[in-house]
Design a protein around this nucleic acid. Structure first.
Lengths: 131, 131
DNA sequence: TTGACATATTCCCATGATGGAATACAGTTG
DNA sequence: CAACTGTATTCCATCATGGGAATATGTCAA
């Protein structure tokens, strides 16, 4: 099979730079009609419609009629899964203190979970004996 | 042209659920050889190698030889661009004040635009003139 | 109705990603 | 050396995507 459809989930939907640009524009300027986005982002109109269509199917944006125009507005909440996922990795690039703290918490969690045979993982090289 | 290569940037690289699973596993258990990931994630070995190859090209993981094995370890810092991007939208579902404010703005916009649902178009205040 | 404007949809096509299977390559041990 | 384990690569078929261009649909205004 080919790659998962861009309309299948948010992660695929935001993989396209132009779609992120659309999202950014809608977040910045609020609900906008297609034409405004075309001018702002300097994209061709059919492309904007196409990408908005993808974002719509995933639920990231929603439309409402405004006479001749279609007002697209952001549904940022749909981005939460992405945020929730990357948030876990924030510790890896924050300052040292936070990283150490996070690592300590993680180790504590693992200890509490009591995984048998689970090697303690650190950033260092792990001799790792594989069961 | 077709979709951007999965090896072109981080956003494309993490679009695949299995690659995210690999990342999660490496974050949880630290550096691991391929075989361990194969067992942990119950994926076929060639697939694991392939996906790790993608993550490697993007820089999300790095390899080091450990005798017969290859130890893959996470380079979580490469995920920072993703975090930086979504972090901007956190306010839309977390912060109460901002959310209320955003909702108020949206409602005002919908009312002005004659939006969906409860849209009494009795008085079209100001038909939003774009640009 | 006609015309002008706004947006969506449809074709065609080259690219490249993925699943699956088979196989090649590398390192260890006997 | 050969046998074995661990990992990477290759080949193939399928298929969604995005670019471009053309066109269809929709809506307002005169």
């Amino acid at each position: 099979m080919a790659r998962a459809a861009t309309t299948s989930d948010v992660f695929n939907a935001i993989a396209e730079p132009r779609r992120r640009a659309l999202i950014d524009a809608l977040a910045r300027d609020g609900a906008r009609p297609v034409g405004a986005l075309v001018r702002t982002l300097r994209m061709r109109q059919p492309d904007v419609s196409k990408h908005l269509g993808v974002l719509r199917k995933v639920g990231i944006v929603s439309v409402s009629k405004d006479g001749q125009r279609r007002l697209y507005r952001l549904n940022a909440r749909e981005l939460k899964p992405v945020h929730d996922w990357v948030k876990h990795y924030e510790q890896f690039w924050n300052d040292h203190l936070d990283r150490i703290k996070a690592t300590a918490e993680r180790v504590a969690r693992e200890r509490a979970a009591g995984g048998p045979g689970t090697a303690p993982a650190t950033d260092k090289h792990n001799p790792d004996k594989e069961r």
